[in-house]
Each structure stands twice: as C-alpha cells, then as structure tokens.
Design a protein around this nucleic acid. Structure first.
Lengths: 144, 144
DNA sequence: CCTTATTGTAATTATTATAATTACAGGTAA
DNA sequence: TTACCTGTAATTATAATAATTACAATAAGG
C-alpha cells in the first residue's frame, strides 16, 4: 500500500500559503485548491502546527508559515504529518517460529536493511525545500 | 501506512528454502516457520514463481530456488510480491483545483521528488542479495 | 487404476488505515 | 452580541491486508 496523501496535501498547503502570503489562507480557501473539505485541512494544519511549521490561532482566520521557505524541507513535512513512523515503512510478519534457525533470526537480519532503505528515501526528502517547490511552480507558470 | 509483510515473508520463504535445500519445502513446512497458514504461503510462492525466482509444480511437494542465491536481490523479491507499484509508493491527492496556480502545478512539481525517493529506497534493496541474508543468519547462529 | 498428498486459487471474514463528511464547542474580532 | 473561524470528535464509505476455509486440478506410489 502507499504512503498517505496527507504528505502531498501538506506540501500543497504550505506552498499555497506562500503563494497567498498577502492574503488570508483560511481552511476553506486551502480546501478549495486541494479539492477536499476544510475539516481535513484543519487536521493537517494542526499537525503542521505541532511541528512548528505554521502559525495558526483559534478564532483567527488564516495560517502563516512559521519559518522561512528555505528552512522547511519535505522531510520536515513528512515527519510532521506522521505518514510513516521510524522503522515502520516496511512491515514484518510478527512471531516467526523460534524453533527454526531462519524463523528466529530473520527479523534481525532484515531489519537493518529496511532501516537503511527507509533512511535513503527520507534523505532525498531532506534535500528538497519548499523554496525549491515554489520556484519550480513559478517557473512552470511562466512557461505556460 | 506501511509496505505489506508479503515482502518480508517472501524473503523468509526463500531463505528457508535455501536452509532446507536437501529437504522438501512444502507450503505447510514453510508456513510453520513463518507462523501463518499454508494458503498465504502458496499465494506468495505463486508470485515468486511468476518472477522466475522459484520452481514449483502442482501436485509435487516442495519448492526450489530457480537461481543462485547470489543472483537474487531483495529488490527482485520486492518486485515479485508486488507490494509497491512504480511511482506509487507515495499517494497524491487527485483533482487539485486547476484554477489555482498551485493546484494546477503541484502534482508535476512533487512527482519527480517522490520518484527519486522511491528509487533511492529500491536501490538499497537491489544491493542486498539472498546470499547476504543467509550468510548473516548463519553467522548469528554460530555466535549463539 | 485408485488412493493420498500437494499445489493453485477462489471466496469469506476480521482488521486496519484512509479519506470524506457532519457537527459542534471554543475562541476572536467587529 | 453577532458572525466567522479554528479545533476536534464522531460517523461513514472505501480499500488493502491478512487469516482462514474450501475445493478443483495435478502427480506420485502402491
């Protein structure tokens, strides 16, 4: 199965807040661009807030970025929206048979490889910032 | 969410077939070590067979490796058991709003990054063979 | 040829996560 | 006090996994 779209939506939200930085980015406004409902947006924004990526306050319309664009990586967003936990990207079968030499060692043999693979994936995300995404979209808009 | 344990089970199965190469690896035998039921094992073996990783025949008990240990990577197993499709590890929200500059470009902006991350993960799996896993387990057994 | 055992596969059920939606309490500003 | 927004819980629909049961098709051995 695949990693929740919360991650892609989180990136979308943050990017749009930047594009709309002179306006008010309410959950309804953001939901319209993402094409989903405001409650889901607020849930994700709550996670981004907990990770100190955005500023938002009850009763006050709009969300703002809490940091500079160049200081937010996709890895920050990925961690914030909690789509994959540490060392849990790959699931293992629980309870292999301890009476079998393979059964009693397979988890320890595989685990480090799974960790390495997951870290390789996350490293790629850590090398891309929101600034890159925004620049890419600005460029795409200029071409068309 | 996480990647199906079919992958870990597939690796377990192939490793155990090697350990038991002088015996008969029936689905029941394999299921006992994995600690699941034979039908699931047979389903996974069917996938491994389709990928030419094992030899198995209806009515004849036992499964054998179809290639040398050193010629089967974890990536081969991962692809065989079909846990993640190309470019589908990360899911995107469908139908972002095309009237919004961010909505109409976000998918194309994010997609290449997701692809790169997925490939980085898969590259790690491609660098490990079943021979490595078997050697690791043999070593762990000798120590204990 | 017939019995027995195994593989291949379909169908069923329970579990889990996601995503969409509704509803409403709590907070803020005008 | 009104109007609007955020925060959050509850509900529903959907989808994938994993476990399980069942059985047809196949092959070996007596």
């Amino acid at each position: 199965m695949s990693i929740s779209s919360r991650f892609a939506v989180g990136v979308h939200i943050l990017t749009l807040i930047e594009f709309n930085k002179d306006g008010v980015s309410s959950s309804e406004y953001l939901a319209e661009s993402v094409n989903t409902n405001p409650a889901l947006i607020r849930k994700i924004i709550g996670m981004l807030k907990k990770a100190d990526l955005v500023d938002v306050h009850p009763g006050i319309a709009g969300t703002k970025l809490a940091r500079d664009l160049s200081d937010i990586t996709l890895l920050d967003v990925y961690k914030a929206v909690n789509v994959v936990q540490d060392n849990k990207l790959f699931s293992m079968h629980e309870n292999p048979n301890p009476k079998c030499p393979v059964g009693r060692n397979i988890q320890e043999a595989i685990m480090p490889i799974f960790s390495t693979a997951q870290r390789a994936l996350e490293k790629v995300l850590g090398n891309v910032t929101l600034e890159d995404i925004v620049a890419d979209i600005v460029e795409k808009e200029q071409i068309n």
